[in-house]
Design a binder for these strands. Structure first.
Length: 309
DNA sequence: GACCAGGTAGCAA
DNA sequence: TTGCTACATGGT
């Protein structure tokens, strides 16, 4: 087993592992106590529990060690990110958790907007993630009209039921299923697992990817709005889910998914951005949130409103 | 029992 | 194009 540490002081703008992984953007990590996204088992931002995920068949575990406030302005006392894997996976971890993003500059370059500044200030150290595209696609197909804790539960169930079992450090982990593994499931099975009306969407999209009709990663090569349109070819994927996939797995930092919370924010704080349809409203709020990193702003606002502060 | 949650597909006009 | 409406499920 390989292990290592990454000083959080090296991460411009800090790094808050808890808020990064439990802010509703990733459903592909699991917390060791199994209580991730459980608001009743809220461990607080400074906890040091392990989180694990499986990438390319390898288990990766990370946790925060030492330090005071994870997003403290005084970064010198920020502690370290400790990791374990079967090989040297530090480069993968840096990519997945976007540790090399210059978060300080991103926050500083955000528009001078009191509401936005409040959200950024409240959750310093929250970074976007870069999750694997297929798992992200299925996760957000499942997310329709669902609370984040239940989305995480559904994704975990899919992994347990259809994903590869992987032994690491004496414990069994489950990879997120490959397209062909999910494509071999049936709508009835997935309904039994509690996916509800999303069940046929998941099966049909998995079949499309398994058959080679398309892959979410193909959207990488396109311009932002074309990429969004491209992703809506998958069943169960509309503009909003497409934006989530672009933002949380394909590096389109300008994407602003218009979900119920952001729509609330638009109604309350940016009513002039409501253009009556998704594409135009998206364009308006994207501009209001500073363009290039509008998705970062979106993620902070989403978390700020959803967890209510 | 309503109401709500990181919405979308299918259909009518 | 735009504007309904049905769709599962569990928590408050």
């Amino acid at each position: 087993m390989e292990t290592g540490t990454i000083p959080i002081a090296e991460c411009s703008g800090g790094f808050d592992l808890y808020r990064t992984l439990e802010s509703g953007q990733s459903y592909l990590w699991r917390r060791e106590d199994g209580e991730m996204y459980n608001d009743d088992a809220e461990p607080g931002p400074g906890h040091d529990r392990w989180y694990s995920t499986v990438v390319d068949g390898d288990v990766i575990r990370v946790r925060r060690r030492g330090g005071d406030q994870p997003g403290a302005a005084d970064n010198s006392s920020a502690g370290v990110l400790e990791w374990e894997a079967s090989d040297d996976r530090e480069p993968t971890i840096r990519r997945l958790l976007r540790l090399d993003d210059d978060l300080e500059s991103i926050v500083e370059s955000a528009p001078a907007d009191p509401f936005l500044e409040e959200a950024y200030e409240a959750y310093r150290g929250l970074r976007l993630v870069e999750d694997p595209p297929f798992g992200t696609l299925i996760s957000f197909i499942c997310s329709a009209q669902m609370r984040v804790s239940r989305i995480h539960g559904m994704v975990s169930t899919l992994a347990r039921t259809y994903g590869d079992e992987i032994e690491f450090d004496g414990e069994t982990y489950h990879a997120f299923p490959r397209p062909e593994q999910l494509a071999s499931s049936t709508e009835a099975e997935l309904r039994d697992l509690g996916l509800g009306y999303r069940a046929p969407y998941v099966v049909r999209t998995a079949e499309m990817v398994a058959n080679g009709d398309g892959h979410p990663a193909d959207a990488r090569d396109l311009e932002y709005e074309d990429a969004r349109d491209h992703l809506t070819q998958f069943v169960g994927v509309g503009d909003k889910v497409a934006d989530c996939v672009l933002l949380f797995s394909l590096g389109f930092d300008e994407a602003v998914p218009l979900d119920t919370w952001i729509k609330t924010a638009i109604a309350d704080y940016y009513p002039d951005c409501d253009c009556g349809n998704y594409a135009e409203t998206s364009r308006a709020i994207r501009e209001r949130f500073g363009g290039k990193y509008a998705g970062y702003a979106q993620t902070y606002v989403f978390h700020y409103l959803r967890t209510g502060e």
